[in-house]
Design a protein around this nucleic acid. Structure first.
Length: 305
DNA sequence: AATTAGTCCAACCGCCACCTT
DNA sequence: GAAGGTGGCGGTTGGACTAAT
């Protein structure tokens, strides 16, 4: 492992001045971003290796592709993973495992990298706290019977409060039509119609703040959806739909007896998790990042104009 | 105010599948 | 059909940032 260290972000490769012949690594500069955006605007993406060469970028094709897909692409949606998105991620991961790109396809504007990061930083952290493996049946059941119902409950609560306080602005809530979704025939997944804009509205406050930054997108639509279970994937329909239908429902008798898991600890962890994620909203830190990203992209756009 | 610990995320790598020649 | 190139995916890491002490 130590051997890897040397290859990472070696400052000598970041300067760009002294080693013109070499490929650059590390963080992208504004100039590089502009170059890439301009080039793709004029020539389209794809053929990344030749793109990198033709654009004059001292980057690998892979690096260009990654930068474009994960950051510069206009429809990328940054930060603030909503409750609906969390729920969807949990559900889809339970079905597909670490198929991040596949999961990301169901979350418009989200990148596989972002979802992967979310999973690792949030979900795996809680698994660790519970001292169980994320792939274990117990952990998956914990998600299904505790966390997901809690998320549904919170989504419903948010929807209810939104209905009461209808005039209030909820960040980037958009009156988009109910979740539609795609399907390839058998596979069906609901997708919250999230606003494909950068979450910049309430982000810039350094502390995150939340409260008013409550960004609940399309809560009502999705909640309606959940009410009918229509939007749950088909496989969710059996035991899972029941679980989702009954927030806070206790797991089946003896469910948690078999393993070493502590039910109370799970409950606690669930509460901590949801609370830590900002209650109605997700983490403020994500917001901050979103704000920074949005500002930066705005800046880039100004440069291009 | 300074230091430490924890969290988040951008960017890298290796591997593999697919495509082109 | 084989070889080489390219793109895509999942895993991992280090730096930046924030919160806690």
């Amino acid at each position: 492992m130590d051997g890897n260290k040397e290859r990472r972000f070696d400052s000598s490769t970041l300067q760009g001045g002294d080693d013109d012949g070499d490929l650059r690594r590390g963080p992208w500069t504004v100039e590089e971003d502009i170059t890439l955006i301009n080039y793709i605007a004029n020539h389209g993406d794809g053929r990344w290796n030749s793109l990198a060469r033709c654009a004059g970028l001292k980057r690998t094709g892979k690096s260009c592709r990654l930068r474009w897909l994960n950051y510069l692409r206009p429809d990328v949606r940054r930060g603030n993973i909503t409750l609906e998105e969390q729920l969807l991620i949990l559900e889809l991961h339970s079905r597909w495992g670490n198929r991040w790109s596949k999961i990301a396809q169901q979350l418009p504007g989200r990148t596989d990298n972002e979802i992967k990061n979310y999973w690792r930083t949030r979900v795996q952290k809680h698994a660790k706290q519970l001292k169980c493996d994320v792939n274990s049946k117990q952990f998956k059941d914990t998600m299904r019977y505790l966390w997901m119902p809690r998320l549904v409950e919170r989504i419903q609560a948010a929807a209810a409060s939104a209905a009461v306080d209808g005039s209030r602005s909820y960040g980037s809530v958009t009156p988009t039509p109910p979740a539609v979704m795609m399907n390839g025939g058998s596979d069906f997944v609901s997708t919250p119609q999230v606003t494909p804009s950068y979450a910049s509205e309430n982000s810039s406050s350094g502390g995150g703040g939340s409260s008013d930054g409550t960004q609940v997108s399309s809560v009502s639509e999705l909640t309606d959806c959940y009410d009918n279970f229509g939007c749950f994937p088909v496989s969710y329909g059996q035991e899972s739909a029941a679980a989702a239908a009954a927030p806070l429902q206790s797991p089946a008798p003896g469910f948690f007896n078999e393993g070493t898991l502590d039910f109370q600890a799970m409950e606690q962890s669930t509460c901590q998790w949801l609370a830590a994620d900002g209650g109605v909203d997700t983490s403020e830190s994500l917001w901050n990042a979103a704000g920074a990203g949005a500002d930066y992209l705005w800046f880039l756009q100004q440069q291009l104009n």
